[in-house]
Design a protein around this nucleic acid. Structure first.
Length: 378
RNA sequence: GACCCUAUCGUCCAGCGGUUAGGACACUGCCCUUUCACGGCGGUAACACGGGUUCGAAUCCCGUUAGGGUCGCCA
């Protein structure tokens, strides 16, 4: 599910099929038996307390790694590894090699935690008389404190990005920047370009710490550059989950259009648009105290209501001109009108551009909200 | 403990013998904006340490230290 969400496809596997199945270890016993027999025939397997061990040649093994270079391991003191348990089940290192052989794997690209296990795998390939595949061990991802990141750590689960409303492309972009870069200081880079520029040999060998802040920032960049249609597609699931009665997609788009530039995470969308779809919204207490309770606020709001009720065209530019004109006429700063108007029509002091917000809300609803505010805080 | 890998701002990357050591995130100053953001212009901040090699080392070599990994009848 995580790979799918990130837009990463695979060639074959369970639920997809392919020529190298079956794809479950439990169904591949015949392959394991076959190669196990080969090792036995060569006298390279011996029994030890019911289990079976592979007899290591105890010769130095040189691993040629596409990322780490050429590394020689001295195998002289290594214990023989167990490859099969007394109950007949198999050990990872053995089946891993057999699966890669039978599935025709040409490149084994995995975490660096397996670098030290690779000579074991190479010994099995050699014993089976099969040329080892190309290996590439990539750096591990660390937590901010330097410890190895694992399943339960913050940021390790793709599910958390889905829940918080990250854009898949943004997370994928961030991940690409861990241990690799386009070399020209760019941070936001499309997957097509990553693919054309990517080269295993260019991967860093240093482990990287996961920086959620930067991932968050890249997500903001993606939202900023995103089309309204895509923005709506990604927002709607969160809006529906919040139970906001937004009507149709056509009714929703104008609202999303004026808040898009404010959004950093899709899970924040409901909070930004809720008051557009209900008259039953609460007034933020701090804003009420700071602005609505201020001396003269109600008189200013009353004057603005009167002025707005007379405009011939209800659009942002007209409303802005009218508001400023009213401020001049009353001899007050525009802020004395802007702030009360914002709170009266949305219940809060933070929101999209005031004039655009009023335009989208529509004349009738704005005047009604002004009236309600006037009544409630007179 | 043995073996393997690594070592540039707090973090992610550039740098691959001669640079005022660059960019991004984060932090921060100013501008823009009478909201919040975006954006623009600045700032703080790094070559782990010690030896070599060299006319000259962040760049090459060795050592130390630190961090990570592997040494399973886990995967």
């Amino acid at each position: 599910d995580g790979l799918k969400w990130l837009g990463l496809e695979w060639d074959e596997g369970p639920l997809k099929g392919g020529d190298r199945g079956p794809y479950f270890q439990s169904q591949r016993n015949a392959f394991y038996e076959k190669h196990f027999k080969t090792l036995q025939d060569k006298g390279l397997v011996y029994e030890d307390n019911g289990s079976f061990r592979f007899r290591s040649p105890r010769q130095p093994v040189t691993v040629v790694d596409m990322v780490c270079g050429t590394i020689t391991f001295d195998r002289a003191l290594e214990p023989d590894m167990t490859i099969r348990r007394p109950d007949g089940s198999w050990i990872f290192h053995f089946v891993n090699v057999v699966d890669d052989i039978e599935m025709g794997i040409t490149h084994v690209i995995r975490g660096e935690d397996h670098l030290s296990n690779t000579p074991k795998h190479v010994e099995i390939y050699n014993a089976l008389g099969i040329k080892p595949p190309n290996f590439a061990h990539i750096p591990l991802i660390l937590n901010r404190d330097g410890s190895k990141m694992s399943k339960r750590d913050d940021g390790a689960s793709i599910a958390s990005y889905v829940e918080q409303g990250y854009s898949p492309e943004a997370v994928r972009n961030y991940l690409c920047l861990l241990g690799w870069s386009p070399k020209d200081n760019r941070e936001v880079i499309g997957i097509d370009e990553v693919i054309s520029l990517f080269d295993l040999e260019k991967i860093n060998r240093r482990n990287a710490a996961f920086d959620l802040d930067k991932c968050f920032w890249i997500n903001g960049q993606y939202i900023h550059n995103m089309s309204m249609e895509q923005f709506a597609d990604l927002s709607i699931p969160f809006i529906e989950k919040a139970g906001i009665p937004f009507g149709s997609r056509e009714q929703l788009i104008p609202v999303l259009a004026i808040v898009k530039e404010k959004i950093k995470l899709f899970c924040d969308v409901p909070e930004w648009i809720s008051y557009f779809f209900t008259e039953d919204f609460a007034y933020d207490e701090a804003s009420v105290e700071k602005t609505l309770r201020k001396a003269g606020a109600m008189n200013n709001l009353t004057a603005l209501r009167q002025a707005f009720s007379e405009v011939s065209s209800w659009d942002a530019a007209t409303l802005e001109a009218k508001l400023k004109e009213t401020a001049v006429a009353r001899g007050v700063k525009t802020g004395e009108l802007i702030h009360p108007a914002r709170i009266a029509s949305s219940g809060r002091s933070i929101g999209p551009s005031l004039y655009h917000m009023l335009e989208v809300l529509g004349k009738d609803r704005v005047l009604a909200r002004f009236d309600r505010t006037l009544t409630q805080f007179a």
